[in-house]
Amino acid sequence: MTTVMDAVQELPDKELLSRHAQGDEHAFGELVRRHRERMWAVAIRVLGDPEEASDALQDAFLSAFRGAHRFRGEAQVSTWLHRIVINACHDRMRRKMVRPAIPTDDVNLDVLSNERYKGTTPDPTSRTDAALDVHAALERLPTEQRLALVLVDMLGYRVDEAAAILEIAAGTVKSRCARGRARLLPYLAHLRNPEPPQDVTSPRGGGRKS
């Protein structure tokens, strides 16, 4: 049978957003259903902590809800949502910036990294452990490198997609990723080959700068 209304589920994102802006109360819920998993994936990887990520996600959806009229039609709704989530994460990070500034001395970092590694139960194959290590390492990066790496390396976005989300040039995304990877290398070297387990004392385990 034909009904008067279109099923919300079949409407494109942009239509949903504009309906929401015009007062349709179903439209935004559908957008949330469509995008929440992905937005969570972004937030949890940027922030590392589920509680922080869920706060950020809620902030983001509320701000999208309120700011739908600010959506510029030329962008993808998904890109716009990503940007809002990233901004919400950024706000959360800034609020947590009571923690000491990121050390920049590589030697120091290597020591910290090794200490940390020795301190944990040595189960390099543990995925959770790896995730924690990765997050701890990411936290050492300047925010802009971290965001670029989360999008490109962790979530597999194309450089141009990440560039659109972050509103920067594609070349900037690439260089942020490159510098971020270089910086992460000493902290993640022990995760290079999860199986077989790596020898912690191997020279490959630490910083290998010469």
Partner: peptide, 25 residues
């Protein structure tokens, strides 16, 4: 090793969206 950094990042397991978070939103 740099290529491996990307790989290690990509292999970080996904944390599924908790139902509680969905409900909260």
């Amino acid at each position: 090793a740099l290529t491996d950094v990307s790989r290690v990042l990509a292999e970080v397991p996904a944390t599924p969206l908790p139902d509680a978070v969905t409900a909260r939103i």
